[in-house]
């Protein structure tokens, strides 16, 4: 069952409790952080408006990072984009392909929110959600979260007439459904992020970078293969088998 977060940016007051809960709950080492609070104030004194962007992985259903990941370190599960760090080869394709500029390279490996896989598997909620004093975060079944997001956007119109839901359809639907106080463009978000088709990912990112590594065809095959067969990095090195899987064309586990 696809899970999702709701992130109500109208309600967020930038207190950073989520960032520290994530940091401490996941015991992230120094230099690693999955959530960044970014001030977003527009206008000139004294005509100002704005708030905070809670910058984090939005868990795209059609995740460009998953599409380009040659090792299967990034994969989709329960609607969320997981990251198996030990499997990361450090190629940085995810960094350059992300439409929301999220993954960061730390010590040669991709880092980003994995939706608190370990914690939720253990029966808890994601750390950021359970601590948020502003109750700007929720987590649950995606269809339910979509409903919640719509209700929140409606409530937000008391203060922000243009409040709206973002992420219902973008990138195949986001696993972090945003409740925005204003139009996405105003907040620096693409109304329609570039669709991360295998073709343009391959042409734009994988091909130029990968030539000279293990061969363009092999990687192209690997891209599609991994999409269908997450987390099988050993098999990925078997080029022949990977090539067979190119034809499967199943681009989303959780569609």
């Amino acid at each position: 069952m696809a899970q999702a977060f709701v992130l109500d940016l109208g309600r967020c007051i930038g207190c950073e409790a989520c960032a520290l809960a994530c940091k401490t709950g996941n015991e992230l080492p120094t230099g690693v952080s999955y959530i960044e609070l970014i001030e977003q104030v527009r206008g000139s004194f004294p005509d100002l408006e704005g708030g905070f962007d809670n910058h984090r992985c939005l868990h795209c259903q059609d995740a460009a990072c998953v599409a380009v990941c040659p090792t299967g370190a990034l994969y989709k599960e329960d609607g969320l984009t997981r990251l198996n760090t030990p499997a990361c080869s450090g190629c940085e394709y995810c960094v350059t392909s992300c439409p929301y500029d999220v993954p960061r390279m730390v010590d040669g490996a991709s880092t980003k929110c994995d939706g608190c896989k370990a914690t939720t598997d253990a029966g808890g909620g994601p750390w950021c959600v359970s601590t948020c004093p502003s109750k700007a975060l929720e987590y649950g079944e995606r269809s339910e979260m979509l409903r919640t997001a719509r209700t929140r956007a409606e409530a937000l119109r008391a203060h922000y007439p243009n409040a709206q839901v973002y992420g219902e359809t973008q990138a195949g639907g986001l696993g972090v459904i945003l409740v925005l106080p204003d139009d996405p463009e105003v907040l620096g978000l693409p109304r329609d992020p570039d669709p991360p088709t295998v073709a343009n990912v391959w042409q734009g990112v994988v091909q130029p970078v990968s030539i000279g590594l293990i061969g363009a065809t092999a990687v192209a095959a690997g891209v599609a293969g991994v999409i269908a067969r997450r987390n099988h990095m050993a098999e990925l090195r078997d080029i022949e088998e990977a090539e067979q899987l190119v034809g499967d064309g199943d681009s989303s586990e959780e569609a």
Partner: peptide, 10 residues
């Protein structure tokens, strides 16, 4: 629980 999940950075 059926698993010993791996946190990204634990």
């Amino acid at each position: 629980a059926g698993l010993l999940p791996r946190a990204a950075h634990a």
